[in-house]
Design a binder for these strands. Structure first.
Lengths: 205, 205
DNA sequence: CGGATTTTGTACAATTAGGTACAAGTGCTT
DNA sequence: AAGCACTTGTACCTAATTGTACAAAATCCG
């Protein structure tokens, strides 16, 4: 498998397949087909077969895919066959929600730190975490070797913080701030902005 | 402008343009070009010109686009030249964060209700909101004529709640639950799942 | 005022993504 | 053991998306 040659759009669908497979496994199912999986995720069976076949021949004619086997393959392809350390920057309501969220641990992620620049928040706790000062963020991230960050600071601060994260060695940013970030090509950004998502739907109302 | 003919992928970029234009307006800028806007949002100038030209000739050769004029046009196209009532279902941490979020009001949305099925939460308050019982949700949504919902319930409950929302007349769902929803074709869904978004990036690490 | 510069909107070309169809492998049933 | 139903992986085709290039319009500047 040549990672450079896989289109982003296919990579973007793999986590959706993986999520559905994990739900099937939780229900005790052992095998599935592109047809069945497609019905669960709202994607055509042919599309799913073609996406998966980019990485190898994981299915068996007549029976379909072993859920456990395909899950393992997808986890390996997406590199979530390990646990990634993640930091949260911004200890507002969204930072709190992410820190308390239980949905990371089964999907390959583990929060190892929360930072904020508000001196009144620094030293406070969220669950088991102590909020640390943004001033020591770069050195802490470097020391821990963290490659992934979730950014929940106000839009006005987001670009500055993103640059610090890049400087600290972060290579993937999940950006909750409502602004496009300018980062080097080797750093990936995913955007979560509820207003933007809502505006994508109002067009059709 | 024929809404049926506009590809989803273009509609998806319009809110990003709008967001950047609103920031420029806040800085006091009056005009911009496809070149400049493209640098802000990380999209090629030609792409932006082509996207915008789907809806009319809003620019002027030599000078570019009036920020105010283009903003108005995009708001109108996206139907956020009005305020949409929105409900939140699920009063967990994410429901709290959304209820307290100040970033909706300038972008066309107004939260008018929060629901939860936990009797211990019902009657409690989040900011100015009183948490209402999911049992009365359908009738309340119908009475208010709400068309948009944000879903922050656990995955196990999401499909059931989505069906109730559809029954109540909701036509757009912003789904924070980590599961694909099965809804009629005339109902739009946007997905926000931090683990899925993170997994889209780990592939490249 | 006139040439240089900027910028749009679009025609055309190239690339990318998705749909269709089917040979071939697998297992089930009788 | 033979036929049937199911399902994959892929070759081929079609549609959708993006990139390139440029004529035409508008402004700027000396």
């Amino acid at each position: 498998m040549n990672a450079d040659k896989i289109p982003d759009i296919i990579v973007g669908r793999l986590p959706v397949y993986l999520r559905a497979l994990q739900r099937m496994a939780d229900k005790g199912l052992k095998t599935t087909s592109s047809q069945e999986l497609g019905e669960h995720v709202g994607i055509s069976a042919a599309q799913i077969r073609k996406d998966i076949s980019q990485f190898g021949e994981f299915g068996k004619q007549g029976t379909g895919y072993s859920i456990e086997f395909l899950t393992d393959k997808l986890r390996s392809i997406l590199k979530v066959d390990r646990i990634w350390d993640v930091v949260v920057v911004g200890a507002g309501d969204m930072g709190h929600a992410l820190a308390n969220y239980q949905g990371f641990k089964d999907r390959g992620f583990h929060i190892v730190g929360i930072f904020d620049n508000n001196k009144e928040k620094v030293g406070g706790t969220i669950g088991n975490f102590t909020i640390e000062d943004t001033e020591i963020m770069v050195e802490r991230i470097k020391a821990m070797g963290v490659k992934i960050a979730m950014l929940t600071v106000p839009a006005a601060a987001a670009q500055d913080v993103a640059e610090k994260l890049v400087q600290a060695g972060v290579r993937a940013i999940l950006n909750y701030a409502p602004i496009t970030l300018n980062v080097p090509n080797n750093v990936k950004v995913q955007y979560i902005d509820p207003s933007t998502h809502l505006q994508r739907m109002t067009f059709y109302l």
